[in-house]
Design a binder for these strands. Sequence first.
DNA 1: CGTGAAAGATAGCCAGTGCTATACCTTCTG
DNA 2: CAGAAGGTATAGCACTGGCTATCTTTCACG
Lengths: 162, 162
Amino acid sequence: MAKKLSLGYKVFLTHSGNLNMPTSPTPLQDQADRFARAREAQSVALLEDYVELIGDLHAELGEARVADIAQRMGVAQPTATKAIARLKREGLATSRPYRGVFLTEDGSAMADRVRSRHRTIVAFLIAVGVPEDVAETDAEGIEHHVSGHTLKAFERFLAQRD
Amino acid sequence: MAKKLSLGYKVFLTHSGNLNMPTSPTPLQDQADRFARAREAQSVALLEDYVELIGDLHAELGEARVADIAQRMGVAQPTATKAIARLKREGLATSRPYRGVFLTEDGSAMADRVRSRHRTIVAFLIAVGVPEDVAETDAEGIEHHVSGHTLKAFERFLAQRD
DNA sequence: CGTGAAAGATAGCCAGTGCTATACCTTCTG
DNA sequence: CAGAAGGTATAGCACTGGCTATCTTTCACG
Ligand SMILES: [Mn+2]
Ligand SMILES: [Mn+2]
Ligand SMILES: [Mn+2]
Ligand SMILES: [Mn+2]
């Protein structure tokens, strides 16, 4: 810690902005936990995007080939292969060499969940005045950091707006 | 590519995000560009969080020590040291061994921008019905993926709501 | 003052996610 | 039905961002 100061109250230092709120100490640990959660979300983000995309490809083309996955993700083919290896390791997908990629039950469930969330967020952004293409771009990153609680709030907003 | 399908327009797909030009929809490339942008946002996210935090620490304690940075980020001290090395490499911060970390003009500007955006997003989430602590957590990840366009939409919403 | 505890730097490990180059397998086509 | 073409796997490199262990420096206090 910086200096010693009278210590003891440092435990109650609140995060950046507030300074105006009266109560809620927001201990140091809370902020660290938030960063940890964001890091965790990030580590899951790639899995989510791949799984959603593989589901899309099956729906559109009847199969998900590595080359298509790589092209749509905007990465080189070996990068996609490596990501698919991780999906398999985590029980989200299977694949037979030179044959394509398939989602497991878990992977399929994740894909549905992720796709639904993606659509809600895009619809919500458009509803608050963001142009569709911008909404689509921002949603691709935002989606991985929106909690169930926030997602519900977005859905409420969309429902009430009509 | 899987199957042959219509192809033919694939020849015109250009790499990299030229964006802004109204010509040709080419949805395939668009999606790849969106993923690329999300990846880019992620690579900047850590810098943004550190820079904002260093600014906060200077405001609260008069200095930013590595131990404080590490504690608030929820990482081990060498991890913070390594991140600070990257900040220095990118011209956002300086530091003197065993002394503390200081933001450059660029770093300071980024901190202000990032802090303002962070607050706007938290306020916006609260305004649509997300509890404060959840808003604070989700914002920590979301903030790095919100474009200027979307941020403006959030600000409009906050202004009109009253 | 001197010194020990705390802060910071450094070394080295690991996993993840990019990349290129190249070898291998399948498929299409003449 | 033999290649050629193209899709896929593999090897190997770079960089980021975690970690622990350990060494060095600073500074507060006895
Ligand atoms: Mn995404
Ligand atoms: Mn998505
Ligand atoms: Mn953040
Ligand atoms: Mn923030």
